[in-house]
Deep mutational scan, measured.
Amino acid sequence: MSIQHFRVALIPFFAAFCLPVFAHPETLVKVKDAEDQLGARVGYIELDLNSGKILESFRPEERFPMMSTFKVLLCGAVLSRVDAGQEQLGRRIHYSQNDLVEYSPVTEKHLTDGMTVRELCSAAITMSDNTAANLLLTTIGGPKELTAFLHNMGDHVTRLDRWEPELNEAIPNDERDTTMPAAMATTLRKLLTGELLTLASRQQLIDWMEADKVAGPLLRSALPAGWFIADKSGAGERGSRGIIAALGPDGKPSRIVVIYTTGSQATMDERNRQIAEIGASLIKHW
């Protein structure tokens, strides 16, 4: 067993022997301040990774656009098919120029040779490549099948209805392509620590998230040296922004954090800054 596999296998073990965790309302004060600064709703939840206990939450059962955070769930569904012998990570998928959609920095470079399922998941999570996500959605049967996968996990809230990039439209009061912070946090925890996926697939999923290259201005910008984070960000229309993450000190994750916002007129930089400040408060009061 590799060191990384050992780390993920012992996530519940280490967490069980940690000192009790206590909620700190100071972080919620910052979440509410972010709402004021952005002029928009902000949803927040913080779960203990081992027990699933909610440590703090704000608007945990209000719907927010998922945006690209759905790509972690998508690759979880792909990995479940791999575990069941219905898919192979090494299978190569070929596609054409007509398949390319807006923001496809990886797939646009491989029109000639195609990409493997493993490479597509890596591109979808680490670079948020939209064509990679659409190609992977095709392998599982489309958005409705991802929703069905989530329902089978016990998540009857999260739903995907459309493809990239239309799913980022974020129309107010439109339930399409949305989740709730509580539902997303619980589902992410199941994917990373539950028995739904094999140990190898859980490790692969967290490795992809740990290698995320496009979430630097968010929670990662607030992390002290030595902290662990595996995350996936999302951005959408109407001032929408979000991030889902597993993080913790001492090089291992111990909490799940989900943050979503929508309806702001603020710039992307300002949305990023507010999420980073929430992260800084979380870490300060850990």
Rank of each mutant, 00 (worst) to 15 (best):
D113S: 07
T187K: 12
I45Y: 11
G239Q: 06
L136W: 00
E166L: 14
T147V: 06
L38V: 08
C75K: 00
G239R: 11
R59V: 03
M209S: 07
L197E: 07
E56Y: 13
H285F: 03
A77H: 05
L196N: 08
R91L: 10
D161A: 05
L146I: 14
S233N: 03
D83T: 03
A225P: 09
M115C: 02
P217G: 09
L205H: 01
I171Y: 15
A34C: 14
S233A: 07
Y95R: 02
E210N: 15
R92C: 13
Q265R: 05
E87D: 12
G90L: 11
G90S: 10
R92N: 13
G114M: 03
A183G: 09
A77Y: 14
L191V: 13
R273G: 09
R91C: 14
P60T: 10
D99Y: 05
W163V: 08
T138G: 08
G85R: 08
S104M: 12
I283D: 02
A246E: 05
R189Y: 02
V82Y: 09
T179R: 00
L28Q: 13
T69P: 13
K284R: 11
T131P: 06
M153L: 03
S80H: 15
I259Y: 03
G194Q: 13
T186Q: 15
A222Q: 11
A215R: 10
L218N: 02
T158A: 07
P224Y: 04
G154S: 12
R59G: 14
L137W: 12
L150C: 10
D155L: 01
C121E: 01
G194Y: 13
R271L: 10
D174R: 12
M115V: 06
M66G: 12
L38Q: 13
I206N: 02
E26K: 03
T112N: 14
A225L: 04
A200P: 06
G141F: 06
T69N: 03
A40P: 05
G76S: 09
P253W: 04
D177W: 00
I125R: 00
G216F: 11
C121V: 06
S122N: 07
L205W: 09
T139H: 03
A77T: 13
G39A: 04
H110N: 03
E46Q: 13
E102S: 06
A185E: 01
I93L: 15
N272I: 09
F58T: 07
D129R: 00
N152E: 15
T187H: 15
H285L: 06
V72R: 00
P65S: 08
P249S: 12
A245N: 01
V31T: 07
T27A: 10
T158F: 07
F149T: 09
A222N: 03
E145W: 14
A276P: 02
Q37S: 07
L196H: 13
L74M: 14
G141K: 14
G242D: 01
R238D: 02
L73G: 12
R81V: 06
D269E: 06
L137R: 01
D33R: 02
L218A: 05
D99M: 07
A215T: 11
S264A: 10
A77F: 03
R241H: 08
I206M: 15
I244P: 00
E195V: 10
K144D: 02
N130V: 01
K71F: 00
R273K: 15
D113M: 02
V257C: 08
S122Y: 05
E108W: 15
H94A: 03
I93F: 15
D231T: 11
R162T: 13
V82Q: 04
T107Y: 05
L137P: 00
N98R: 10
I45Q: 08
A133G: 04
A148W: 11
S233K: 01
D36C: 05
D83A: 05
V72A: 06
Q88Y: 08
M268F: 03
L100M: 13
L196R: 14
M180F: 05
L111E: 09
W208S: 09
K53Y: 12
N272D: 12
